[in-house]
Design a protein around this nucleic acid. Structure first.
Length: 234
DNA sequence: GCGACAG
DNA sequence: ATCTTGTCGC
């Protein structure tokens, strides 16, 4: 898919100082009002993830396209790169997205929806990974995180599909703790761009029919980790 | 000042 | 994120 006509910066920020300005710019461009595509309107969905090596700055980014109905893999792309930005909570996008965008650019198919690790607007400046990725690609995008970040929620019900709002200090709903499997820790869903929370959660449940995490994330994680091992690993 | 802190 | 053995369970 073409990412060169997107709003991605020509030169990515290398230090937190530059990153904050870019984050402010991106947050202002996010579409947080559209309900976005419901499950029935999505044929192709893409998942992205990045794996890192221990003793070096080597990394591998993966972008995988799945049939949104059968969850069968359609296409995948891997990019071997180098970490050029430190891990700073709140600035994850600048560490992961340059390589992720390169992986997306290698895809021949364009999905109607993007799913990533981490958060969207459930972020100190409403500019989580999914917000950046959605704005940069122009595609509907939301995030599914494994642990809470800066916000908390009450415990969702025990049944699959149960949810509990992630709320900011001022009572704004910024995401949802969602139980994707009975008796398993919930995941944390928050929107990034061009999709509403209800649809994001509906997609998440369809993409996670058997495991805690959506297949998009699981497959991207497997492929990136596998390539990292084969290259930088032992 | 101190702790917390997506991946 | 990554470093790591065995173990309990479907």
């Amino acid at each position: 898919m073409d990412t060169h006509s997107s709003g991605a910066p020509a030169v990515w920020p290398r230090v937190p100082d530059e990153a904050l300005a870019e984050q402010e710019r991106v947050a202002a461009l996010a579409d947080l009002d559209s309900p976005g595509p419901a499950p029935g309107a999505v044929r192709l969905v893409a998942g992205v993830d990045v794996s890192y090596a221990t003793g070096s700055d080597a990394l591998v980014a993966a972008a995988v396209v799945l049939d949104a109905v059968t969850l069968e893999p359609v296409e995948s792309a891997l990019v071997e790169g180098r970490a050029t930005f430190p891990y700073v909570p709140g600035l994850l996008a600048f560490r992961e997205l340059p390589s992720v965008m390169a992986a997306l650019d290698k895809l021949t198919r364009t999905p109607q929806l993007l799913v990533c690790d981490g958060y969207g607007i459930a972020h100190p400046r409403r500019a989580g990974l999914a917000v950046h990725l959605g704005v940069l690609t122009g595609l509907p995008c939301f995030g599914v995180a494994k642990t809470p970040f800066v916000f908390r929620s009450g415990p969702p019900g025990a049944e699959r599909g149960a949810g509990s709002p992630l709320t900011s200090d001022d009572g704004e709903v910024v995401g949802r703790a969602l139980r994707t499997q009975k008796g398993v820790r919930p995941v944390y869903v928050s929107v990034g761009h061009g999709i509403g929370l209800d649809n994001a959660c509906a997609h998440t449940l369809r993409f996670a029919p058997r495991y805690r995490l959506p297949e998009t994330t699981r497959l991207a994680d497997h492929l990136s980790r596998e390539r990292l091992r084969a290259t930088s690993g032992a």
